[in-house]
């Protein structure tokens, strides 16, 4: 997945000489936490966060005489800015968020600002990868960590007329020789697939059958 697939394109920006109070107003009005600062040619020269603006704001206990918020935004902006490209991989930029502890990355192409990706967009992408945003049931299968396991499993699912909305492969924490394959399938009744998988000898972790183990 590429940055251009997940970036926001309707941008709220400011010029370097805008007063800080305008930034404060924009942050409130649009419920955002970052504003890229651009010059006349739409080149990113800095970025301000809600925290930068708050640090520059007078204490709520101070009397209202302060002119601090009339200062130019360029006096508090962070610079230089770490920017990303529309063709970067989402997986790569995830590590920038993690390592640098940034909450927002401007997307720059030909030296011009073309988009923005925030932590929230990253999380939304993750939710979509898990498939939990569409109706479905979850099936978990434990398989040996060997070549060719996934196609064997998907073949079983594919024989039923049921759509797979996501597939995730996790390490099996208590034994590195195994993996857990998690499917979300668009059906209310996963039992036919589960029974097919069991018939083929797969170890189905979920749905669990309480019925047999707990029958009196």
């Amino acid at each position: 997945m590429l940055v251009s697939d997940i970036m926001k394109k309707n941008l709220i920006t400011l010029g370097p000489d805008s007063p800080i109070y305008v930034a404060l107003e924009l942050l409130h009005k649009h419920h955002i936490r970052h504003i890229p600062i651009v010059d006349e040619s739409n080149q990113v020269i800095g970025i301000v966060s809600d925290r930068d603006v708050r640090d520059a704001s007078p204490s709520i206990f101070a009397s209202n005489q302060s002119k601090d918020l009339d200062n130019a935004i360029k006096t508090i902006m962070s610079t230089p800015v770490v920017a990303i490209h529309p063709l970067d991989f989402v997986e790569e930029i995830a590590s920038i968020f993690y390592e640098e502890e940034f909450a927002c990355l401007p997307v720059v192409q030909d030296n011009k600002l073309v988009g923005i990706v925030t932590e929230k967009d990253m999380l939304q992408t993750l939710i979509q990868l898990t498939g939990t945003h569409v109706q479905g049931s979850q099936i978990e299968i434990k398989v040996p960590d060997q070549i060719g396991m996934l196609p064997q499993v998907t073949k079983v699912v594919g024989q039923r007329r049921i759509n797979i909305t996501s597939v995730l492969v996790y390490p099996y924490t208590s034994d590195p020789k195994y993996r857990v394959i998690v499917f979300r399938v668009q059906t209310m009744n996963p039992l036919p697939i589960v029974n097919d998988l069991k018939d083929k000898g797969f170890d189905v972790l979920w749905p669990q059958e309480l019925e047999k183990s707990n029958e009196l």
Partner: peptide, 9 residues
């Protein structure tokens, strides 16, 4: 809970 069961919400 929708963690495993349809529809998930």
């Amino acid at each position: 809970t929708g963690r495993y069961l349809f529809p998930g919400t």
